[in-house]
């Protein structure tokens, strides 16, 4: 474990806490893409299939459970909780996210570390996570002004994988046999997808103005 990875995991956890706060405090999921939340639930379920069979550390197991439980709880809130469900705007959240699932799974069938069930689902979860934010970014562009908590949620979610890139560079330099190309390349693509969001987020922070993504 190095400082970059710990900072990355804490930033990821923070993004989830900010989203939970937004939904709990405002009893609304306006500006939040249900499809992105569903994709993230699939990402965690597919990635942590070894949760009970492969013990790495208490921290690792604890965080996996937190990520799975929180992503399912958020999807449940948006789909079932009467107050929150009413605020979900399905006319804005129209990204065909099942195509992302299909494409990621197809890619995982061809590009993986080992042709085993766990490795293919792991690669699938890595590719799917790289594109999981797309429905959310499209929704932000459509919904004009973005409330602060939703903006912070997306910012921290994008920042965490950027910190993981620093972690991979650090591990590549310090650990002789460290190679994790699938996660690295996918992580760079994932972070690059946030580039324009980060730009407009920085502008809104600098001008102390409302975050607005151009349509």
């Amino acid at each position: 474990m190095n400082i970059f990875r710990l900072a990355g995991d804490m930033t990821h956890l923070l993004s989830i806490l900010v989203l939970l706060l937004k939904i709990y405090a405002t009893k609304s999921c306006s500006g939040v893409s249900r499809k992105t939340q569903e994709l993230y639930a699939i990402v965690f379920l597919a990635r942590y299939l070894d949760l009970f069979t492969d013990f790495i550390s208490v921290y690792n197991t604890f965080m996996k459970i937190v990520f799975i439980a929180s992503s399912l709880a958020i999807v449940w809130c948006i789909r079932v909780h009467p107050m929150v469900k009413r605020s979900y705007d399905k006319d804005l959240d129209t990204f065909r996210h099942y195509l992302l699932v299909a494409a990621s799974f197809l890619l995982a069938l061809f590009l993986h570390e080992k042709f085993t069930f766990l490795e293919i689902f792991w690669a699938f979860s890595i590719y799917l996570e790289a594109v999981a934010i797309l429905p959310q970014l499209v929704l932000l562009q459509r919904s004009g002004n973005v409330d602060n908590l939703t903006g912070q949620y997306v910012f921290f979610l994008g920042a965490y994988r950027g910190l993981y890139i620093l972690n991979w560079i650090y591990r590549y330099l310090t650990e002789p046999r460290f190679t994790r190309w699938i996660a690295c390349v996918s992580g760079v693509v994932q972070t690059a997808l946030y580039a324009d969001f980060f730009y407009y987020y920085f502008i809104s922070w600098k001008n102390n103005s409302k975050l607005k993504l151009p349509a």
Binding site: N60, F67, K114, E119, R180
Partner: peptide, 10 residues
């Protein structure tokens, strides 16, 4: 120690 592809990251 597990082989190189051990998934020790989240």
């Amino acid at each position: 120690v597990k082989d190189g592809t051990s998934k020790d990251e989240l």
